[in-house]
Design a binder for these strands. Structure first.
Length: 245
DNA sequence: AATGGCCCCAACCGCCGTTTC
DNA sequence: AGAAACGGCGGTTGGGGCCAT
């Protein structure tokens, strides 16, 4: 895009007329080829800006209004699984956008975490990267086991809340400890987050670690059988799919 | 009533992977 | 095969609104 053309592009908040026009043209042309849609529509906006406006605000599939308690819990749980993978988390929440999830998390959870000033802060200097990864993975397994059972996530969400209220030691403690990774902005954070995403599809690795931990007497874990990650993932899939249907 | 601080969220930016030509 | 265009993502910013003083 040349300089002169960019000069004439509008920025900032969208006007009602612009919204109406955008909706009209998306209905006509579909939600693809945003640059040409922006040109054809006569909107003095970039294609990217049009796309964003549609995706985050105008799309009729979007759900408006405050987050429900279940959505709140899901965001909390999935962020513990995946870290700042907002788009990935948003895909599990029908009608919510990555931007919305991101904003929600930033304003609610981080603040909450900082305010509560958890004392389980990890001393980075005393840990190796490998040790931290292992610790992270183990707490993930503990969390998954206590929140994913054979009856699906919708019930699980309720149970996890109950567990959280009843005990801060095993489950909530673990998740908070993981959250401290995020709060501290550790150099490991992104790598750990990416790594967790990778292992989410690696069944054999997960089972291997499960065996190792199950055989250890120092872990007092309430296990309900099955392959933890597969079961958890499947339940998430089923649950989120059912929300869309 | 004025104002300063804070919260919230829409919008933007830059980067990167994918698709198209 | 490679360049350009496009789409998606995560991080950041700016402004409006609310609230306490």
């Amino acid at each position: 895009m040349d300089y002169k053309k960019e000069e004439t592009l509008r920025r900032g908040p969208w006007l009602e007329e612009e919204d109406e026009r955008l909706v009209k043209f998306v209905t006509l042309l579909g939600d693809r080829r945003w640059d040409s849609l922006a040109r054809v529509s006569g909107l003095k906006r970039s294609g990217k800006s049009c796309r964003l406006r549609w995706m985050n605000y105008l799309n009729p599939r979007l759900k408006r209004g405050p987050m429900s308690q279940d959505e709140d819990t899901i965001i909390f749980q999935l962020h513990a699984f995946w870290g700042n993978k907002w788009a990935k988390i948003a895909r599990r929440l029908p009608g919510r956008t990555d931007n919305e999830v991101k904003n929600y998390y930033r304003t609610h959870f981080r603040k909450k975490m900082e305010a509560q000033n958890y004392d389980k802060i990890i001393d980075w200097s005393g840990n190796t990267g490998e040790g931290l990864l292992r610790k992270y993975k183990e707490t993930e397994i503990m969390w998954t086991r206590t929140t994913t059972q054979e009856h699906g996530l919708d019930k699980t969400v309720k149970e996890s809340k109950q567990i959280n209220m009843e005990s801060n030691e095993e489950t909530y403690g673990s998740i908070c400890e993981k959250e401290s990774f995020g709060v501290m902005n550790s150099p490991y954070e992104n790598r750990i987050s990416d790594w967790i995403s990778e292992i989410s599809t690696d069944q054999s690795d997960a089972n291997h670690l499960e065996d190792r931990i199950s055989s250890s007497s120092e872990h007092n874990i309430n296990i309900n059988g099955g392959s933890w990650w597969f079961q958890g993932t499947r339940n998430f899939e089923e649950f989120s799919c059912s929300l869309w249907s």
